[in-house]
Nucleic acid binder design. Structure first.
Lengths: 211, 211, 211, 211
DNA sequence: AATGAATGAGGGTTCATTCAT
DNA sequence: GATGAATGAACCCTCATTCAT
């Protein structure tokens, strides 16, 4: 559907990198302070302090700005989480879960309107699967970690379980952010998510309701 | 925010109801066969076989069409599910879960592009919480059912658990629909969702990964 | 340019008269509380509590409402002034002038937004000459009065003098109303207008500036 | 109220000035040859030979065209009159009056429909006081001139007298233009206006009618 | 006489994108 | 590489007016 590479020219030079950066900066500012409908190429160029012509030399079209920005943002998120996991390496799964959930909440639940709109943009552009990619990456890292030789019991997470788990997690966080839910920032939500995460990782057979 | 009532005039006469219906019909057809950007008031009116003026006598603006339609759609969904539960009343929780999940998948996962865009519309209008309402309604019905006198053990679902559960479920389905995931329609997905649902309903303490 | 008779059906019956009245009432209310652009047939009909169809049975088109209303309004004005003159019949010209000016100011300078907009409407419809008609009528009455047999000296006002005089007077008042001038309501303005009026009535040859 | 500056971008380049000019030209042509209702942005752009987009880069909205144009027109008028006065400097007040009145009539009474509509535009935009500004400017110049040292008798024109005078003069001319009066262009009208002007400038106490 | 749903021409305005400089 | 004036297709929405009931 959409051009896979949203950039028109690779930021080889420092100059180019700067231009892309100011465009992102301007985009974020607009999404944050104004509505999504306020986001248009002319406005971005103006706020970025560049000409509209220059903008179009770095992005083939309006959408490409959002896509590029969102991708970079999501990359950052997974980088951070993976870093957290690696740094606080632990054998305790519940600790692990907490680290991941907390990082996710911090990343997406920042109450930052810009991120919310960015997410909307991804969705509206049929790129909503990108949203879940960071979690998939994260989970993969965890699985790899847990499956290291020397471990007694390695996790065996089926692809579909991974899929459901990541979408469930992100789904809850996404909803909370979009609805500006009052649960955001509470310990309760974090606990529930940790529990959900652990359940999915364990992949135990669901026990009966009545025992 | 957004006008709560997306209708401009109450359908007092039968005529009005019909008009709204043809507008919905046309909207669905456009969303299904063409892209979202093809969805404009003129196209809708034309396909609906009414004048643009008439359309605007029933909907205050373009967005209102989507919002009204989405709401009705979601209402239908919960109606159906609740009906299913009531019809196939069962003491077996896993049966219950299956009924609910299957109904949800059928409702949202119809692979119908129109529904996808409708969901987008809700989100874009800051009404994404409406998406989860049907599940909340459904769960409420279930809880009520399970808690009837005579039952040995009633369910005690905390609000936050209900919240997380409904958003997790819808999150997965939503993602699958939006991404046009290949899991859609598979038994595997259904099973996973049933499991997730049951787990959440039971709300058991998550066992350790290795334990 | 415009239909001379703005009414579609003569108000023979009481019913008809009432309808026209509620239309005028609604029009006035809209012009007063909202802008001129808010004035449209649908709004008028709604506020008047009649159907749009009924409205069009009494007025051939939108403009006719304004024209009819303005004419009636201006008629009222001249009626009042003439009444004042007749009632306070006086041989003293300056008294006469004061009576006329005061009546005019009261009629047009009422700070009533509706009248202002009505005036605008007349102008916009190329009927601005109607504005001056009341004064012409008034002056005619005065002239007739002054010229009654038994009077030593009758006034001999040339048509062009009458024209200039009436337009000058109305011009000042109109401007003051339109600009919402702070002079409105002051004695100073009244005095100046009385002086102007008297000067015009006297029609003396203009003396040199320096004497 | 209304945006004080009706322009969207300052004519930095020569190009801009030209664009504004062709827009004015096209506007005038339309107002002159067609009715006011024919005046719409698309028609203007077309006749101006520019795209509608370009037009909107110079004027924020349709009305701004009229306002900008009217202002420029009125500026021209006062420039011309002041120029006339200065050029034909004279100590003879009646000559002076004639110069002013003639210039005013020429400026406003050109029978040009465009000017009429322009005036309407000013009025409709609540800027009708702008209409009188040129005369105020002119009178100021005259007063300054007359009050120069060496003159035996300087004029002492109170603000309210100035106000009444300018509005009376313009009022008559405006009416004549709007009504397309047959007096327009006659010597009689000019004489009457000169007389009115002189009377106001002298500000003599009005003599009794019969005295 | 009254109604009011339906009409649809028409117009204001935006904004993604181009291209000559 | 940068600029930004110019473009014009596209689209939302209004509202005067009609006419079947």
């Amino acid at each position: 559907m959409e051009a896979i590479d949203p950039y028109r020219k690779k930021p080889k030079q420092t100059r180019s990198g700067e231009t892309i950066e100011v465009v992102f900066e301007a985009t974020a500012r607009i999404l944050q302070t104004q509505s999504f409908s306020e986001f248009n190429t002319n406005a971005v160029a103006k706020l970025a302090g560049i000409s509209i012509g220059t903008l179009y030399q770095y992005f083939p079209n309006k959408n490409a700005i959002l896509v590029a920005m969102a991708r970079r943002e999501l990359d950052k998120v997974s980088q951070k989480i993976i870093h957290s996991i690696t740094a606080e390496y632990t054998a305790d799964p519940s600790m692990l879960a907490q680290v991941v959930v907390r990082a996710l909440l911090k990343a997406f639940g920042g109450r930052q309107l810009a991120r919310k709109v960015l997410i909307e943009a991804l969705i509206a552009n049929g790129l909503s699967d990108e949203l879940s990619k960071p979690i998939e990456r994260v989970v993969q890292v965890i699985v790899d970690q847990q499956s290291q030789p020397g471990r007694e019991q390695s996790i065996n997470l089926s692809p579909i379980s991974l899929y459901v788990m990541s979408r469930a997690l992100i789904g809850v966080i996404r909803s909370a952010v979009m609805e500006q839910s009052s649960y955001l920032g509470t310990e309760g939500l974090e606990e529930e998510l940790v529990r959900l995460f652990l359940y999915c990782m364990n992949h135990v057979k669901s026990p009966d309701i009545n025992g």
